[in-house]
Amino acid sequence: MKSKGHLLHIAVALAVVLVAFLITNSMENRYYYKASYVVLQYVVLATAWNILGGYTGYVNFGTAAFFAMGSYTAVALIKLWKPPLYVLLVAGGAVSGLLGLGIGYLTLRLRGVFFSIATLALAVVLQMFMTNWEFVGGGAGTAILKPRSVPFFSNYDEFLFFVMASLAVAAVFVAWLIENSWVGRGMAAIRDNEEAAECMGVPILKLKLFATTVSGAMMGIAGAPFSYFVVFIEPSSAFHLDYAVNSLAMPMVGGTTTWLGPLIGAVLVGTAQQIATVTLSAEMNLLIVGSLLVGFVVFAPEGLVGLFRKLRGRAMGRSA
């Protein structure tokens, strides 16, 4: 039964990837690819944030750092020898994963807010380093030429869209795997009560290191294609606070305890932002995200998934 469940999910995941591929061969308007790419990128970031924040209970304010380290690893490699995209993804993931591992060791001494502040501080320090590293453009930034063509796709933006769609599917799948395994249950125990978890035999350090590494690596992978996507990369855009706020707001809106929460949150909030940016203004879109974040954390801490469950529970209670 268990393996059947896996097969079904793998089938759904592959179907989504296939649909993404078919879209690229039928849809023309480039704007939609750009907009969808951003939303899908947030699916990856929100899901990655949630593995550490939602499952394990450690709030990371430094999403931008992990994302940007993925981007800048890619930029450095592109400057050196222009490797194919999959190499950039692997390298970006590896660097940010290592950074995550390092942050994981901080959890030995830092819990709660101290951990969160440390991640925020890390983001600013790394941004300083990138601002001062001339090889990758320094503070002024640098232009990145995207490859002119790519097989099977009519242009590179469509290819990037397809790649990000696949990454989003993979990220959600990984989150689902973790959530439904003994690892995920141990993480939940850590989130609920770290001391009790350890006394019940949960190897808390190992699981926390796993969570920070996987979460960091996923953010780094999401950041790796970024420079090709924006064509011009500078520290202030790669380290933008929006990444930290969004990757945190989206799971909060959707619900933090399941893989579905960040997915729903990222799609809804991400799409709303894209629409708001076009119809209103970039500032209004940030206002919406901020209000949603505060609103949900105050009034609906379980997110949309929790609200839905409550409603369903009430309906079932009435019919019973």
């Binding site: 709660g112 706020v245 945190l248 206002l287 974040l293």
Partner: peptide
């Protein structure tokens, strides 16, 4: 008793909101 995680996020949201309102 939810101050540690959600309370932190709450203040982070306030921080962001003030900044955006000032920009607007």
């Amino acid at each position: 008793g939810a101050e540690s995680l959600r309370g932190l996020v709450f203040f982070f949201g306030i921080f962001f909101l003030i900044e955006v309102l000032l920009i607007i």
